[in-house]
Amino acid sequence: MTSPSGSLHLMSLSKRYGSFTAVDNVSLHIEKGEFLTLLGPSGSGKTTLLMMIAGFQDISQGDILLGGVSIAQTPAEKRNFGMVFQGYALFPHMSVHDNIAYPLSVRRRPKAEIDARVAEMLDLVRLNGFAKRLPKELSGGQQQRVALARALCFAPPVLLLDEPLGALDKKLRVEVQAQLKEIHRRVGTTFVYVTHDQEEALSMSDRIVIMQNGRIEQVGTPADLYQHPKTAFAASFLGKSNFLHRDGAVFALRPEKIDLSPEGQGIGANKASGVVLSVTYFGAVLKYQVAVPGIDPIEVDVDAWRAGQVLPEGARVDLTWADSAAVRLSDHSL
């Protein structure tokens, strides 16, 4: 049951509804075994793109190759992709065991094999002992794990996940992120993950695809995208950025890469002076808003434990940063 190949080629994929283009000429190569995240705000086309890969949306233009073979005309049930849905979409009338067994049972596998595999999957998602429960008797996090076990049960070459953590509370979400990453490492399946949550994207992905208006904005590793955003949208959607206009170009400057010191004490390659507009305490960091004449207020993050004294509102300060801290953007339209 091991899959021959889990590499996906999306070739100039487009999806149009009348005059509206939901997915616009998207080309992407997804490596076998990769954890790839499609990140974007709602309406960016990320879910539509996932549904096209899954086979639930037909393709207006372009092609999808799985291991080099076109699957554009293959119906969803023949693509052999596991899928975890937003809201999980567990079968409410079936026990946890029968839910997980479903993909094997529709493939008419022998019962002994099914039972062994279901036990293995329950073990993987740490739900031993829950086999006889109905979905409604489980917590949200447990339902989410059943959905994951069900989608992985038939060892699909590719697993598609559509905002699977959206319904969980924040604390649980962080926990499940770690579990998901661990499961990905253990099963080695290609994961294509859709989310609008930048923290999820940063913490789990091998690569992130930032999408906006149906197009790919930028592709890269989390560190790559965070350190070297190419567009203003990428720089502001993944983390926060200040935008500086210099020499006819626009630069993105992360709030934590700026040093803040009392007026006259700042030393650095680049320097600006201003007045503290506000300061907010967040435990780990202090967030300053600094008014600098002639430009938008600058946001500065300072490690709270490092800051000797909190500079109050109205204090005159120097802002300094290294040359490498400011990233020149190629496209500065938001």
Partner: peptide, 25 residues
């Protein structure tokens, strides 16, 4: 929930299997 039907399809259930085992129950 329409996603339940999609889930069945994505897990390899044919149209007939999806109807008899998911939709009808």
């Amino acid at each position: 929930d329409g996603r339940v039907v999609q889930a069945s399809r994505s897990l390899g259930g044919s149209g007939a299997q999806t109807f008899w085992r998911i939709y009808l129950p």
